[in-house]
Structure formats: structure tokens, C-alpha cells
Design a protein around this nucleic acid. Structure first.
Lengths: 325, 325
DNA sequence: ATGAAAGCGCTAACAT
DNA sequence: ATGTTAGCGCTTTCAT
């Protein structure tokens, strides 16, 4: 591999001049620039980014941590996050925490070792001790990582309200909701709290069940739905995340339960899968591309050293009227 | 940030000794090792990976290029690829080519600049000229990147046979198959070719249609299905990728076409979405985790400089009996 | 067993 | 405008 000294030698100039010419910093005469360009071509010179990184003490890489890429929500988030990072000239290192413990801590360690310039996190935070180690920019998507970490969330309040309103309009009286279990307070919980509160104010009964949040398998979802449908056989509506909602539709169809006539379903997230079923799922759609953009814009501000960072940014949600409620 | 010299000074030894102690290379007396450990703790020293990278001329990062992370097939592939790379101590930089041209070339350029140690590709190759620039390890998933690049594929031959056999058993006589359009020869095409050939040998009529492969939207899929179902209204079975298959089920249900009584459907890929519908999709499942492992193992061999690389590795497929055919 | 010193390939400050 | 030089923080000879 040709280095900058080879180029300098070939062009008959000093390395500094080559560096300036290539980076367009400082003065270089038209003539020498031409010679340098020729040398670069002749030697097929490619600047070694590793050396640049060392000097600049940056890697140009942001880590993105999600629970599970196989989950369509996070897959989509990762897609748009990567695209936004690309627009800023950054690369995205992905990390799935599922099935392996300690991966969050390891990513933080990568940041300490300067492999990563920052972190975008969509997972639960590690414990306090580790959290204190954060010295570089971190932005969180819908997770509470403490005071110092800006959070990008969906408008959970509005989301909860949209769902509650839709349920009230539907005339249902016995609602089953199934949530992912959380071990610490998270922004998105506001949604379910809101739904419960509004519905109860309207005298509508709400049964609330929990499932393991990080298990993504149709079998598990279907099993949970079966269990709770058996347990509470007088429910006339279900409010759950889209994946559970779709599993619920399959279970209902298998049991010969007509949707929406005998059981109404409303989902949450607005994933594509809700359009692939019949009738299409009624759901509240999160604006994932906007959330991704927001995360990236914010971390770029942090990298720029901007001080005026909004610590909580809220992205819009909208009701998608399908045929299930 | 404390550097290795700080540690050396604190411990009262030379930097070389610290380096040897930390990397466990060369002799270090128990006594000095202890002093160094203390210094490391006291100063909270973290070796700067950027400096190491420069010296070793490696980044520990592999680029993984897929068309679209939102496509569940590639999301799953990325998930398992990342997990396998992690087991080897490597990181995965992800790249979505969708909607942005030239991204493949840019990733190759990142390799030339030593940002990436290698590439795992699940997308069509760039043109010859660019292909020639590959100097570092590249492994391809189901795409033909030329002689030099090992390919990990599914057993397309068996896949095609499983599908053809299932169709023959089902007694259908007029098959509609919709494929993604390819612009160059790709390994997976063997599957459809096989299906067509076997079916025609059995006197079964096959209509073959094409769709844009890189468009992922339910609307587009549904539209295509509607179009071809209108165009060829005497088909009694459809063979398509899982996503199109599920879209097809939704369209059929909307039109009041009973599945499998009036129309049989067989998919390909074995994605989870096929289990979320009712009846569950009959499909041929690709072993994505195995393919990911195979890609990673192979690129690790290449990085190790192994010369005995299998240039074509075939992963198993299996028929998943659902209720649609 | 350990310290000193020479790079890894680049950028930027300084001198000319 | 351009060349020279001193790092960036580490690893690894090479003496001792």
C-alpha cells in the first residue's frame, strides 16, 4: 500500500503539501496540486483512515443498540438510523442485545476505547455504576437512561388518548390489554397508563396482563393470547402491540371468533405486518423514520459540542383505521 | 484521558513493560505486574483502540451490506451475522443500499481506507471495474460477485424440488409464480428454474411474472397480486416469496376466495410472518442463522489467511407444512 | 525482566 | 506556497 510519503516522493514535494492538497486545507499552487493528483492516481493512493482516526481521536462510527433486529420495529429503526447517520458521513455499528448479557456494557467500553464516537440506545440502561462511565454522546430512543441522556420518544400521551378514544367509540366494555414487562420506569409506559385511566373514567373495565417483552416468537405470542383469552372469556376488545395483535387475529380466526364482530382489536406501533392481515389492523402508528432522524440529529449536535440540547423530544403518532376496531 | 505513558510513569516503569503486561506478551515479573494493575485502576486507563488499529492495520470491523433492513429476511440475516461476528470479537457496520445509489462502492472504499477489514454482501455486485478493487476478504450471501468471492447459498435445487413436489401433490394445474427481477445471474434463480422445469415435465402450466425486487411495501405487493390474479383468472395455485404470499392471502380474503380450497399458496423463505396468518403459510424455509454463521466463519478464515476456502457453500432448506397448500 | 527508541500513516504547527 | 518536524497512543524490536 502506497502511503502519503510515497505520493510526496513521486510528486517531488513534501508530505505536508500532499496532506494540504488532499484535505484542501491551506495553500497549494495549481501546479503542484496537479502533480500530486497525478501521483495519487499513479500509485492508487488511498489515505489510511486509521491514521487519521488516531490523530483526530475519532472513529466516525456510532453504535446503535437495539434488543432484537428481528423485531420489525427495531429493524425499521435501524434502517432509518443508518441512513441518517450516512447522510452525516458516519457509520453505524449495530448491536443486538438479545440472548447475550453484558452487550450494553461492552458497547460502552467500545466507546471508552474510542472505537465508537457515540451511542444511540433503544434498550434498557445498565446499572448506575456503568451509567456513570458515559463520557461521550449518548441518545436514547424511548428509554430512560438518566438525566444526562436525551430521550427521543413517541407522543405516548396522544397515543394513549387515540387508543382510548377509539375503544370508547367502539362501544366495548371489557378490555384486555397485554403489555411488555418493564423493570424500570420507561417513557412509553405513559401510553398504557393513559389508556387505563381514560377507560376507567368512562366505566370501562380493563384487565392488564404482562408478557416478557424481549421474547419475539409467534409461538410465544399466540400462547399468551390463548392463555389470556381463556382466562378472561368475557373480553370484547384487546389492546396490544401490533405483533401480539396479529397473533391475536390468527388465534381468533382459528377459534372461529369473528373480528371485529365478536372481538375487536387495536394494536400499537403501526408496523407493516398490520397491513398484511385481513381485515387490516387498526393501530396507532409511531413515526419511526422521524424518531431515527431525531436521534441522529441530536447526537450530531452533541458531537458538535452544542450546548442547547432538548433533553426530551416527542415524535408524532397517528391513528391508522383498519378493520379490527 | 490517561495514556500508556501516564500508567508507566505512575507505576514507575517503561511503556514497553506496561504494554507487555496488558497484552500478556513477553515477560513481566509478578511484582511489576501488580504495580501496573494498580496504576491502571488508579488512572482508570483504557487503551486507545485507535492507536492499536493504526499499528496493527486492522479495525476489527466487518461491513455487512443488505438491500433493506426492513425486509424481515435481511433483518434476521443481519441479526445473526452480527451475533456471529461478535463471537469472534468483531463488530458489524451495517449498510442499507435501498434508495441510495453507490453505497456498495462506498463500502468498498471504506475497505480500501482500512475502516473495514472485510465485507459480507447480500446485494448485487457493482460493475467489473469496481469489483477488481477488492483486496480484502469479501463473502457473499446468495449473490454472484465473481470467481474470487465465496458464496453462501441455500440449497436452491432442493428448495425448487420441495416446492414442485408439494404443488404436484396438491393437484393444481395452473400455477402463477411471481419472481423478483434480477439483472444478472444469481444463485437463487436455480430454484425457480427448477420449479418450472419439474412442473412442466408433469404437464402443469406455469405462468411466470416479475416484480421489482427491491420494493418492499405491502401496497406494492398487494397491487401486483391483484394485477396478476385479474390477468390470469384461472390459476389455482400461487408460488411466490413469503411476503408476496401473505399479501396474496390478504387479497384473496378480501375477494372472498377461500384458501386453500379455491386457491392454494406456497411461499418461499420461511419468515415468521407466515406463522402470523391463518391458515399458516406453507413455505420452504431457508436456514438464515446457518447462512449467517457460514458467512462469518468463512470471512474469518479469509482473515486468518487460510487458503482452503470452499467457494460455494450450501445451506439446507426444509418444507414447512402450513395450511395454504 | 525491563527501558529506550523506532515506527504505524497521517495532520498541523512552524519555519522558510 | 512549501518543506520539515513533532506528535496522535500504541506495539515491538533491540539492547541491556
Amino acid at each position: 500500500m502506497a502511503g502519503i510519503r510515497d505520493v510526496a516522493a513521486y510528486a517531488g514535494v513534501g508530505v505536508g503539501t500532499v496532506s494540504r492538497a488532499l484535505n484542501k486545507t491551506g495553500y497549494v499552487s495549481e501546479e503542484t496540486r496537479k502533480k500530486i493528483d497525478e501521483a495519487v492516481k499513479a500509485l492508487n493512493y488511498q489515505p489510511n483512515e486509521l491514521a487519521r482516526n488516531l490523530y483526530r481521536n475519532r472513529s466516525g462510527i456510532i453504535g446503535v443498540i437495539v434488543p432484537d433486529l428481528e423485531n420489525p420495529f427495531f429493524a425499521k429503526f435501524m434502517k432509518y438510523t443508518e441512513m441518517e447517520l450516512y447522510r452525516y458521513g458516519y457509520r453505524a455499528v449495530v448491536c443486538n442485545t438479545v440472548e447475550i448479557s453484558n452487550r450494553v456494557e461492552e458497547m460502552i467500553h467500545l466507546m471508552e476505547k474510542n472505537v465508537l464516537d457515540g451511542l444511540i440506545v433503544g434498550v434498557d440502561p445498565p446499572d448506575e455504576k456503568i451509567l456513570k462511565r458515559l463520557k461521550k454522546p449518548v441518545v436514547s430512543m424511548d428509554r430512560n437512561w438518566g438525566e444526562k441522556v436525551p430521550v427521543i420518544t413517541s407522543d405516548s400521551k396522544k397515543g394513549g388518548r387515540l387508543i382510548a378514544e377509539r375503544i370508547i367509540e367502539s362501544g366495548c366494555r371489557n378490555i384486555l390489554m397485554i403489555e411488555g414487562r418493564t423493570y424500570i420506569r420507561q417513557p412509553f409506559e405513559e401510553r398504557s397508563k393513559g389508556v387505563k385511566q381514560i377507560l376507567r373514567e368512562h366505566g370501562i373495565s380493563v384487565i392488564s396482563a404482562e408478557v416478557e417483552w424481549n421474547v419475539l416468537s409467534y409461538e410465544y405470542y399466540a400462547q399468551m393470547v390463548e392463555k389470556y383469552l381463556d382466562l378472561f372469556d368475557d373480553v370484547d376488545a384487546v389492546y396490544v402491540g401490533d405483533l401480539l395483535a396479529v397473533a391475536c387475529m390468527a388465534v381468533a380466526e382459528k377459534r372461529g371468533i369473528q373480528i371485529p364482530e365478536e372481538l375487536k382489536i387495536i394494536g400499537y406501533d403501526g408496523l407493516d405486518i398490520g397491513k398484511f392481515v385481513n381485515p387490516p389492523l387498526t393501530t396507532v402508528k409511531q413515526n419511526i423514520p422521524q424518531m431515527a432522524k431525531c436521534c441522529v440529529d441530536t447526537i450530531m449536535h452533541l458531537l458538535d459540542g452544542d450546548t442547547e440540547i432538548e433533553m426530551k423530544q416527542v415524535c408524532d403518532v397517528e391513528l391508522i383505521k383498519g378493520g379490527t376496531m
